[in-house]
């Protein structure tokens, strides 16, 4: 019993730190979100100005843009992750480690570095456009009026660029949970299905996919949540053409010092995320028969 108490005191440094750097800031944010911003001055109180602003058509639209971009990102991560996870399960342990290294090491690479890399590939002077110019594709498209005279293929500075850049960043967050669920499947189930004459398609639809659902749900939740809060990739890859909620929040704070509105938007973002986690829990429960 005494050891138990001693061990509990080990939690103290972390809890004290969190109180100051995690809980307090969030409480401050919550309080600020009910403040009022008038002539560059913030007054506290219980006002719903910021929340009402969130539901103005302009901002609601940005919210749904952010939402759907996150859905696209999640969807494409899912499609790209499955083949990798399936391969990881099939190969020898040594190969598996190599794949694991390949999947995880980019995750430890700065987002900024990876996004600037994509600028080199997708930009107007990027590799793909240089190639398209070289083979004359861009001239043909310009003659047809499909792209403007000075631009190349529209590969970034739009939703496509943002989705692609983010998928590249968050792919590992999808691969790992799916792989974890796949590796929990008993291989003899698949073997018997095969012996009973199931085709590859049937095997995937009736065995692999349903049994991998816990991992799929976990991965989708994670990628979706992370995408909703991402700032840097939409700015770099979207080039002013894509606006997301985190960009609005950052602009309000850094350029206009409008804390109440920015805080209210943050609270709405957090509510969306908590709701996503709640839905994901319900889904997890329903697949865990």
């Amino acid at each position: 019993m005494k050891a138990n108490k001693r061990s509990m005191t080990l939690l103290l440094p972390a809890l004290v730190l969190y109180l100051i750097t995690f809980t307090a800031p969030l409480v401050v944010l919550l309080v600020l979100s009910f403040g009022r911003f008038d002539k560059s001055i913030t007054t506290l109180g219980f006002h719903l100005d910021g929340y009402i602003k969130f539901f103005e058509p302009t901002y609601l639209r940005v919210f749904f843009d952010t939402f759907f971009i996150s859905v696209y990102i999640t969807f494409f991560c899912l499609i790209l992750s499955f083949p990798v996870a399936i391969l990881m399960r099939r190969v020898q342990p040594f190969m598996k480690n190599i794949i694991l290294f390949c999947v995880i090491s980019p995750l430890l690479t700065s987002i900024i570095v990876r996004n600037s890399a994509w600028m080199l590939v997708l930009g107007n002077q990027g590799i793909i456009n240089q190639f398209a110019d070289y083979i004359g594709l861009n001239d043909v498209l310009r003659d047809m009026g499909l792209i403007s005279r000075f631009a190349g293929l529209p590969l970034m500075n739009n939703v496509f660029g943002v989705v692609l850049g983010t998928v590249h960043v968050y792919l590992p967050f999808m691969v790992l949970p799916i792989y974890a669920s796949l590796s929990a499947i008993n291989p003899s189930i698949e073997e018997s299905a095969r012996n009973l004459g199931a085709s590859s398609m049937q095997l995937f639809r009736n065995i692999t996919w349903p049994l991998s659902l816990p991992g799929v749900i976990a991965g989708c939740t994670l990628v979706f949540i992370l995408s909703m809060g991402l700032y840097v990739t939409p700015v770099i890859m979207g080039g002013n053409k894509v606006v997301t909620i985190p960009m609005i929040i950052t602009g309000l704070v850094r350029d206009r010092y409008n804390w109440p509105t920015a805080s209210a938007f943050s609270v709405m973002l957090l509510i969306t995320i908590l709701f996503t986690v709640y839905v994901s829990r319900l889904l997890q429960r329903s697949v865990k028969v």
Partner: peptide, 10 residues
């Protein structure tokens, strides 16, 4: 981003 702005406030 939320943590960042909250810490900025502090």
């Amino acid at each position: 981003i939320v943590l960042g702005m909250a810490l900025f406030r502090i």
